[in-house]
Design a protein around this nucleic acid. Structure first.
Lengths: 197, 197
DNA sequence: GCCCATGCCTAAAGCCTTTAGGCAACCCTC
DNA sequence: GAGGGTTGCCTAAAGGCTTTAGGCATGGGC
Protein backbone atom coordinates (compact mmCIF):
# COMPACT_ATOMS: atom_id res chain seq x y z
CA UNK A 1 0.00 0.00 0.00
CA UNK A 2 1.17 3.46 -0.86
CA UNK A 3 2.28 5.57 2.06
CA UNK A 4 0.34 8.70 2.66
CA UNK A 5 3.33 10.80 3.57
CA UNK A 6 2.05 12.11 6.84
CA UNK A 7 4.09 14.66 8.71
CA UNK A 8 3.22 16.90 11.63
CA UNK A 9 3.33 19.85 9.23
CA UNK A 10 0.92 18.39 6.73
CA UNK A 11 -1.43 17.33 9.48
CA UNK A 12 -1.31 20.80 10.97
CA UNK A 13 -1.98 22.37 7.62
CA UNK A 14 -4.93 20.09 7.00
CA UNK A 15 -6.16 20.79 10.49
CA UNK A 16 -6.02 24.51 9.84
CA UNK A 17 -8.05 24.15 6.67
CA UNK A 18 -10.52 21.98 8.50
CA UNK A 19 -10.78 24.60 11.23
CA UNK A 20 -11.68 27.26 8.69
CA UNK A 21 -14.37 25.02 7.28
CA UNK A 22 -16.04 23.65 10.37
CA UNK A 23 -14.72 25.74 13.23
CA UNK A 24 -11.70 25.24 15.40
CA UNK A 25 -13.64 23.51 18.16
CA UNK A 26 -14.83 20.90 15.70
CA UNK A 27 -11.37 19.94 14.53
CA UNK A 28 -10.91 16.29 15.19
CA UNK A 29 -8.06 13.86 14.74
CA UNK A 30 -10.51 11.49 13.12
CA UNK A 31 -11.60 13.96 10.49
CA UNK A 32 -8.03 14.86 9.60
CA UNK A 33 -7.27 11.17 9.21
CA UNK A 34 -10.27 10.82 6.93
CA UNK A 35 -8.95 13.62 4.75
CA UNK A 36 -5.69 11.79 4.29
CA UNK A 37 -7.62 8.59 3.67
CA UNK A 38 -5.76 6.97 6.46
CA UNK A 39 -6.73 5.23 9.70
CA UNK A 40 -6.96 7.41 12.77
CA UNK A 41 -4.36 5.55 14.75
CA UNK A 42 -1.78 6.42 12.12
CA UNK A 43 -1.84 10.07 13.09
CA UNK A 44 -0.68 9.30 16.57
CA UNK A 45 2.88 8.74 15.43
CA UNK A 46 3.04 12.28 14.14
CA UNK A 47 1.00 14.12 16.71
CA UNK A 48 0.86 13.38 20.41
CA UNK A 49 -2.87 13.73 20.77
CA UNK A 50 -5.80 15.88 19.93
CA UNK A 51 -4.63 18.74 22.10
CA UNK A 52 -1.21 18.62 20.45
CA UNK A 53 -2.79 18.91 17.01
CA UNK A 54 -4.78 21.91 18.11
CA UNK A 55 -1.77 23.56 19.67
CA UNK A 56 0.11 23.14 16.41
CA UNK A 57 -2.72 24.75 14.51
CA UNK A 58 -2.62 27.58 17.01
CA UNK A 59 1.10 28.06 16.52
CA UNK A 60 0.73 28.01 12.75
CA UNK A 61 -1.99 30.62 12.89
CA UNK A 62 -0.01 32.89 15.19
CA UNK A 63 2.89 32.60 12.80
CA UNK A 64 0.83 33.41 9.73
CA UNK A 65 -0.74 36.35 11.49
CA UNK A 66 2.63 37.66 12.61
CA UNK A 67 3.98 37.38 9.07
CA UNK A 68 1.08 39.34 7.70
CA UNK A 69 1.46 41.92 10.41
CA UNK A 70 5.15 42.34 9.69
CA UNK A 71 4.38 42.82 6.02
CA UNK A 72 1.70 45.36 6.74
CA UNK A 73 3.84 47.33 9.11
CA UNK A 74 6.83 47.54 6.80
CA UNK A 75 7.34 51.11 5.72
CA UNK A 76 4.43 52.51 7.66
CA UNK A 77 4.20 54.61 10.77
CA UNK A 78 1.70 56.45 12.88
CA UNK A 79 -1.95 56.20 12.06
CA UNK A 80 -1.13 54.54 8.79
CA UNK A 81 0.57 51.72 10.64
CA UNK A 82 -2.18 51.52 13.23
CA UNK A 83 -4.81 50.99 10.59
CA UNK A 84 -2.69 48.54 8.67
CA UNK A 85 -2.04 46.39 11.71
CA UNK A 86 -5.63 46.51 12.85
CA UNK A 87 -6.81 45.46 9.43
CA UNK A 88 -4.44 42.54 9.39
CA UNK A 89 -6.18 41.04 12.39
CA UNK A 90 -9.64 41.81 11.17
CA UNK A 91 -9.03 40.55 7.65
CA UNK A 92 -7.33 37.41 8.84
CA UNK A 93 -10.24 36.63 11.13
CA UNK A 94 -12.68 37.08 8.28
CA UNK A 95 -10.68 35.04 5.81
CA UNK A 96 -9.72 32.35 8.29
CA UNK A 97 -12.18 32.24 11.16
CA UNK A 98 -11.05 28.81 12.27
CA UNK A 99 -7.40 29.76 12.33
CA UNK A 100 -8.21 33.00 14.09
CA UNK A 101 -10.04 31.05 16.77
CA UNK A 102 -7.05 28.75 16.93
CA UNK A 103 -4.80 31.72 17.63
CA UNK A 104 -6.78 32.15 20.87
CA UNK A 105 -6.05 28.61 21.98
CA UNK A 106 -4.69 28.43 25.53
CA UNK A 107 -1.08 27.45 25.07
CA UNK A 108 1.10 26.41 27.96
CA UNK A 109 3.51 29.12 29.13
CA UNK A 110 6.35 27.25 27.47
CA UNK A 111 4.54 26.96 24.15
CA UNK A 112 3.47 30.57 24.33
CA UNK A 113 7.02 31.69 24.97
CA UNK A 114 8.20 29.85 21.87
CA UNK A 115 5.31 31.06 19.75
CA UNK A 116 4.94 34.01 17.44
CA UNK A 117 2.92 35.63 20.20
CA UNK A 118 6.06 37.47 21.15
CA UNK A 119 6.37 38.96 17.69
CA UNK A 120 2.85 40.26 17.99
CA UNK A 121 3.51 42.29 21.09
CA UNK A 122 6.81 43.46 19.67
CA UNK A 123 5.06 44.74 16.59
CA UNK A 124 2.46 46.54 18.61
CA UNK A 125 5.28 48.12 20.57
CA UNK A 126 6.99 49.09 17.35
CA UNK A 127 3.80 50.65 16.15
CA UNK A 128 3.54 52.66 19.33
CA UNK A 129 6.96 54.14 18.84
CA UNK A 130 5.25 56.51 16.48
CA UNK A 131 3.23 57.85 19.38
CA UNK A 132 6.13 58.25 21.72
CA UNK A 133 4.72 57.10 25.03
CA UNK A 134 6.75 56.86 28.24
CA UNK A 135 7.26 53.35 29.52
CA UNK A 136 4.55 52.29 31.84
CA UNK A 137 2.07 53.85 29.47
CA UNK A 138 3.44 52.05 26.49
CA UNK A 139 2.53 48.75 28.06
CA UNK A 140 -0.92 50.00 28.91
CA UNK A 141 -1.32 51.06 25.31
CA UNK A 142 -0.15 47.69 24.02
CA UNK A 143 -2.82 46.08 26.14
CA UNK A 144 -5.44 48.53 25.03
CA UNK A 145 -4.73 47.94 21.37
CA UNK A 146 -4.66 44.19 21.87
CA UNK A 147 -7.99 44.37 23.64
CA UNK A 148 -9.68 46.48 21.01
CA UNK A 149 -8.39 44.46 18.07
CA UNK A 150 -9.19 41.16 19.64
CA UNK A 151 -12.44 42.27 21.18
CA UNK A 152 -13.83 43.91 18.09
CA UNK A 153 -12.87 41.12 15.76
CA UNK A 154 -14.25 38.52 18.12
CA UNK A 155 -17.56 40.28 18.55
CA UNK A 156 -17.85 40.91 14.85
CA UNK A 157 -17.16 37.27 14.11
CA UNK A 158 -19.77 36.27 16.65
CA UNK A 159 -22.22 38.19 14.54
CA UNK A 160 -22.60 40.95 17.05
CA UNK A 161 -22.55 43.81 14.59
CA UNK A 162 -24.07 42.27 11.55
CA UNK A 163 -27.37 43.38 10.16
CA UNK A 164 -27.56 46.48 12.28
CA UNK A 165 -26.79 49.96 11.14
CA UNK A 166 -24.31 51.52 10.92
CA UNK A 167 -22.31 48.84 9.21
CA UNK A 168 -19.33 47.31 10.86
CA UNK A 169 -16.73 48.82 8.56
CA UNK A 170 -17.86 52.27 9.53
CA UNK A 171 -17.55 51.57 13.23
CA UNK A 172 -14.18 50.00 12.67
CA UNK A 173 -12.86 53.08 10.89
CA UNK A 174 -14.29 55.39 13.44
CA UNK A 175 -12.84 53.38 16.30
CA UNK A 176 -9.40 53.39 14.74
CA UNK A 177 -9.65 57.15 14.27
CA UNK A 178 -10.53 57.45 17.91
CA UNK A 179 -7.65 55.25 18.99
CA UNK A 180 -5.25 57.30 16.94
CA UNK A 181 -6.45 60.48 18.56
CA UNK A 182 -6.31 58.87 21.95
CA UNK A 183 -2.74 57.75 21.45
CA UNK A 184 -1.62 61.10 20.13
CA UNK A 185 -3.05 62.83 23.19
CA UNK A 186 -2.24 60.09 25.63
CA UNK A 187 0.05 62.13 27.84
CA UNK A 188 -1.93 65.34 27.58
CA UNK A 189 -4.47 63.97 30.00
CA UNK A 190 -5.69 64.70 33.49
CA UNK A 191 -2.34 64.70 35.30
CA UNK A 192 -2.87 61.80 37.69
CA UNK A 193 -5.49 59.26 38.51
CA UNK A 194 -8.46 60.79 40.21
CA UNK A 195 -10.04 57.41 39.84
CA UNK A 196 -12.37 56.14 42.47
CA UNK A 197 -13.28 52.58 43.55
CA UNK B 1 -35.75 4.54 44.11
CA UNK B 2 -35.87 8.15 45.10
CA UNK B 3 -36.34 10.60 42.29
CA UNK B 4 -33.57 13.06 41.79
CA UNK B 5 -35.83 16.01 41.03
CA UNK B 6 -34.20 17.03 37.79
CA UNK B 7 -35.39 20.17 36.08
CA UNK B 8 -33.88 22.20 33.25
CA UNK B 9 -33.10 24.92 35.78
CA UNK B 10 -31.24 22.69 38.18
CA UNK B 11 -29.33 21.11 35.35
CA UNK B 12 -28.39 24.51 34.02
CA UNK B 13 -27.28 25.65 37.44
CA UNK B 14 -25.16 22.56 37.91
CA UNK B 15 -23.77 23.01 34.43
CA UNK B 16 -22.77 26.57 35.25
CA UNK B 17 -20.95 25.46 38.38
CA UNK B 18 -19.25 22.73 36.43
CA UNK B 19 -18.20 25.27 33.82
CA UNK B 20 -16.53 27.40 36.44
CA UNK B 21 -14.65 24.40 37.73
CA UNK B 22 -13.47 22.73 34.56
CA UNK B 23 -14.08 25.25 31.81
CA UNK B 24 -17.11 25.79 29.65
CA UNK B 25 -15.78 23.66 26.80
CA UNK B 26 -15.45 20.72 29.14
CA UNK B 27 -19.05 20.82 30.29
CA UNK B 28 -20.59 17.52 29.46
CA UNK B 29 -24.05 16.05 29.83
CA UNK B 30 -22.42 12.96 31.31
CA UNK B 31 -20.64 14.84 34.04
CA UNK B 32 -23.77 16.75 35.01
CA UNK B 33 -25.62 13.44 35.25
CA UNK B 34 -22.87 12.10 37.47
CA UNK B 35 -23.27 15.06 39.79
CA UNK B 36 -26.94 14.27 40.23
CA UNK B 37 -26.08 10.63 40.67
CA UNK B 38 -28.32 9.77 37.81
CA UNK B 39 -27.89 7.97 34.50
CA UNK B 40 -27.03 10.13 31.52
CA UNK B 41 -30.07 9.25 29.49
CA UNK B 42 -32.27 10.72 32.20
CA UNK B 43 -31.13 14.21 31.41
CA UNK B 44 -32.47 14.02 27.91
CA UNK B 45 -36.03 14.50 29.09
CA UNK B 46 -35.10 17.86 30.52
CA UNK B 47 -32.61 19.13 28.03
CA UNK B 48 -32.69 18.56 24.28
CA UNK B 49 -29.04 17.78 23.88
CA UNK B 50 -25.58 18.89 24.78
CA UNK B 51 -25.84 22.07 22.76
CA UNK B 52 -29.12 22.92 24.45
CA UNK B 53 -27.55 22.56 27.88
CA UNK B 54 -24.72 24.87 26.89
CA UNK B 55 -27.07 27.42 25.44
CA UNK B 56 -29.02 27.44 28.70
CA UNK B 57 -25.83 28.02 30.64
CA UNK B 58 -25.04 30.86 28.27
CA UNK B 59 -28.45 32.44 28.82
CA UNK B 60 -28.12 32.09 32.56
CA UNK B 61 -24.72 33.75 32.52
CA UNK B 62 -25.89 36.62 30.35
CA UNK B 63 -28.76 37.13 32.75
CA UNK B 64 -26.55 37.14 35.82
CA UNK B 65 -24.15 39.52 34.17
CA UNK B 66 -26.94 41.86 33.15
CA UNK B 67 -28.34 41.84 36.68
CA UNK B 68 -24.99 42.76 38.10
CA UNK B 69 -24.53 45.45 35.51
CA UNK B 70 -27.92 46.95 36.28
CA UNK B 71 -27.07 47.01 39.97
CA UNK B 72 -23.73 48.62 39.34
CA UNK B 73 -25.15 51.27 37.08
CA UNK B 74 -27.93 52.29 39.42
CA UNK B 75 -27.34 55.78 40.65
CA UNK B 76 -24.13 56.31 38.76
CA UNK B 77 -23.25 58.37 35.73
CA UNK B 78 -20.28 59.45 33.68
CA UNK B 79 -16.89 58.04 34.47
CA UNK B 80 -18.20 56.58 37.66
CA UNK B 81 -20.68 54.51 35.71
CA UNK B 82 -18.12 53.59 33.09
CA UNK B 83 -15.79 52.15 35.67
CA UNK B 84 -18.57 50.38 37.50
CA UNK B 85 -19.83 48.69 34.37
CA UNK B 86 -16.37 47.73 33.21
CA UNK B 87 -15.59 46.22 36.58
CA UNK B 88 -18.75 44.18 36.51
CA UNK B 89 -17.53 42.36 33.43
CA UNK B 90 -14.01 41.95 34.66
CA UNK B 91 -14.99 40.79 38.12
CA UNK B 92 -17.57 38.40 36.81
CA UNK B 93 -15.03 36.85 34.47
CA UNK B 94 -12.57 36.40 37.29
CA UNK B 95 -15.13 34.97 39.69
CA UNK B 96 -16.85 32.81 37.10
CA UNK B 97 -14.53 32.09 34.20
CA UNK B 98 -16.66 29.23 32.96
CA UNK B 99 -19.84 31.25 32.98
CA UNK B 100 -18.07 34.16 31.36
CA UNK B 101 -16.91 31.88 28.57
CA UNK B 102 -20.48 30.61 28.33
CA UNK B 103 -21.69 34.15 27.79
CA UNK B 104 -19.67 34.10 24.56
CA UNK B 105 -21.44 31.01 23.29
CA UNK B 106 -22.78 31.44 19.78
CA UNK B 107 -26.52 31.59 20.20
CA UNK B 108 -28.92 31.39 17.30
CA UNK B 109 -30.38 34.75 16.29
CA UNK B 110 -33.66 33.76 17.91
CA UNK B 111 -32.02 32.79 21.17
CA UNK B 112 -29.91 35.91 21.16
CA UNK B 113 -32.93 38.09 20.60
CA UNK B 114 -34.63 36.56 23.63
CA UNK B 115 -31.51 36.73 25.77
CA UNK B 116 -30.25 39.32 28.19
CA UNK B 117 -27.82 40.37 25.46
CA UNK B 118 -30.24 43.10 24.64
CA UNK B 119 -30.09 44.47 28.15
CA UNK B 120 -26.34 44.64 27.87
CA UNK B 121 -26.32 46.91 24.88
CA UNK B 122 -29.11 48.98 26.39
CA UNK B 123 -27.06 49.52 29.49
CA UNK B 124 -24.03 50.52 27.52
CA UNK B 125 -26.19 52.98 25.66
CA UNK B 126 -27.55 54.28 28.94
CA UNK B 127 -24.04 54.75 30.17
CA UNK B 128 -23.15 56.71 27.08
CA UNK B 129 -25.96 59.14 27.65
CA UNK B 130 -23.62 60.76 30.11
CA UNK B 131 -21.28 61.54 27.25
CA UNK B 132 -23.88 62.93 24.95
CA UNK B 133 -22.86 61.54 21.57
CA UNK B 134 -24.84 62.07 18.39
CA UNK B 135 -26.38 58.96 16.95
CA UNK B 136 -24.13 57.22 14.54
CA UNK B 137 -21.30 57.84 16.98
CA UNK B 138 -23.19 56.43 19.88
CA UNK B 139 -23.33 53.07 18.16
CA UNK B 140 -19.67 53.23 17.35
CA UNK B 141 -18.97 53.95 20.98
CA UNK B 142 -21.13 51.05 22.14
CA UNK B 143 -19.08 48.80 19.93
CA UNK B 144 -15.84 50.27 21.14
CA UNK B 145 -16.73 49.76 24.77
CA UNK B 146 -17.95 46.25 24.11
CA UNK B 147 -14.72 45.47 22.32
CA UNK B 148 -12.48 46.83 25.02
CA UNK B 149 -14.34 45.19 27.87
CA UNK B 150 -14.60 41.87 26.17
CA UNK B 151 -11.15 41.98 24.65
CA UNK B 152 -9.35 42.98 27.80
CA UNK B 153 -11.13 40.51 30.01
CA UNK B 154 -10.60 37.74 27.53
CA UNK B 155 -6.90 38.40 27.15
CA UNK B 156 -6.47 38.75 30.88
CA UNK B 157 -8.25 35.46 31.46
CA UNK B 158 -6.05 33.84 28.87
CA UNK B 159 -3.13 34.79 31.04
CA UNK B 160 -1.92 37.40 28.65
CA UNK B 161 -1.10 40.03 31.23
CA UNK B 162 -0.11 37.95 34.18
CA UNK B 163 3.37 37.93 35.56
CA UNK B 164 4.51 40.93 33.61
CA UNK B 165 4.84 44.43 34.93
CA UNK B 166 2.94 46.67 35.26
CA UNK B 167 0.19 44.66 36.82
CA UNK B 168 -3.10 44.20 35.13
CA UNK B 169 -5.12 46.32 37.51
CA UNK B 170 -2.98 49.30 36.68
CA UNK B 171 -3.46 48.89 32.95
CA UNK B 172 -7.16 48.41 33.47
CA UNK B 173 -7.47 51.67 35.40
CA UNK B 174 -5.38 53.53 32.92
CA UNK B 175 -7.37 52.21 30.01
CA UNK B 176 -10.65 53.21 31.60
CA UNK B 177 -9.25 56.68 32.22
CA UNK B 178 -8.30 56.87 28.59
CA UNK B 179 -11.71 55.70 27.43
CA UNK B 180 -13.38 58.29 29.60
CA UNK B 181 -11.24 61.05 28.12
CA UNK B 182 -11.85 59.70 24.67
CA UNK B 183 -15.60 59.70 25.13
CA UNK B 184 -15.63 63.17 26.61
CA UNK B 185 -13.73 64.53 23.62
CA UNK B 186 -15.33 62.29 21.06
CA UNK B 187 -16.84 65.00 18.94
CA UNK B 188 -13.98 67.43 19.31
CA UNK B 189 -11.93 65.46 16.84
CA UNK B 190 -10.48 65.94 13.41
CA UNK B 191 -13.63 67.08 11.56
CA UNK B 192 -13.93 64.26 9.06
CA UNK B 193 -12.26 61.06 8.11
CA UNK B 194 -8.89 61.65 6.54
CA UNK B 195 -8.50 57.90 6.69
CA UNK B 196 -6.71 56.11 3.97
CA UNK B 197 -6.95 52.53 2.74
C1' DG C 1 -56.99 2.98 46.94
C1' DC C 2 -56.40 2.97 41.91
C1' DC C 3 -54.55 4.69 37.75
C1' DC C 4 -52.06 7.29 34.81
C1' DA C 5 -48.39 10.27 33.87
C1' DT C 6 -44.00 11.40 34.65
C1' DG C 7 -39.26 10.39 35.82
C1' DC C 8 -35.42 7.71 35.76
C1' DC C 9 -33.54 3.31 34.11
C1' DT C 10 -31.53 -0.29 30.82
C1' DA C 11 -30.00 -1.13 26.31
C1' DA C 12 -27.79 -0.02 22.30
C1' DA C 13 -25.65 2.34 18.41
C1' DG C 14 -22.44 5.75 16.70
C1' DC C 15 -18.44 8.55 16.90
C1' DC C 16 -14.04 10.17 18.99
C1' DT C 17 -9.59 9.29 21.50
C1' DT C 18 -5.74 6.74 22.59
C1' DT C 19 -2.61 2.67 23.20
C1' DA C 20 -0.52 -1.77 21.77
C1' DG C 21 1.32 -4.64 18.65
C1' DG C 22 2.11 -6.22 13.72
C1' DC C 23 3.38 -6.26 8.83
C1' DA C 24 5.26 -4.19 4.98
C1' DA C 25 7.51 -0.68 2.45
C1' DC C 26 11.47 2.20 2.11
C1' DC C 27 16.32 3.40 2.54
C1' DC C 28 20.91 2.43 3.42
C1' DT C 29 24.72 -0.40 3.34
C1' DC C 30 27.43 -3.92 1.61
C1' DG D 1 21.24 -5.49 -6.26
C1' DA D 2 20.03 -7.91 -2.05
C1' DG D 3 19.61 -7.88 3.04
C1' DG D 4 18.21 -5.75 7.01
C1' DG D 5 16.72 -2.42 9.91
C1' DT D 6 13.72 1.47 10.57
C1' DT D 7 9.74 3.82 9.82
C1' DG D 8 4.94 4.19 8.55
C1' DC D 9 0.46 2.80 8.42
C1' DC D 10 -2.66 -0.95 9.81
C1' DT D 11 -5.71 -3.92 12.88
C1' DA D 12 -7.54 -4.50 17.34
C1' DA D 13 -9.40 -2.98 21.42
C1' DA D 14 -10.81 -0.30 25.40
C1' DG D 15 -13.00 3.68 27.27
C1' DG D 16 -15.76 7.96 27.08
C1' DC D 17 -19.49 11.05 25.43
C1' DT D 18 -24.00 11.59 22.87
C1' DT D 19 -28.38 10.40 21.69
C1' DT D 20 -32.59 7.48 20.91
C1' DA D 21 -35.90 3.78 22.16
C1' DG D 22 -38.46 1.42 25.18
C1' DG D 23 -39.64 -0.13 30.09
C1' DC D 24 -40.93 0.01 34.96
C1' DA D 25 -42.00 2.20 39.02
C1' DT D 26 -43.13 6.23 41.74
C1' DG D 27 -46.28 9.55 43.16
C1' DG D 28 -50.04 12.76 42.51
C1' DG D 29 -54.87 13.08 41.36
C1' DC D 30 -59.50 11.21 41.36
Amino acid sequence: MVRAGLTPERLTQAGAELADEVGFEEVTVSEVARRFDVKVASLYSHVKNSRDLKARIALLSLEELADRAADALAGRAGKDALIALADVYRDYAREHPGRYAAAQFRLTPAEAAASAGIRHSQMTRALLRGYDLPEPDQTHAVRLLGSVFHGYVDLELAGGFSHSAPDSQESWSRILDALDTLLRNWSAEPPEGDREK
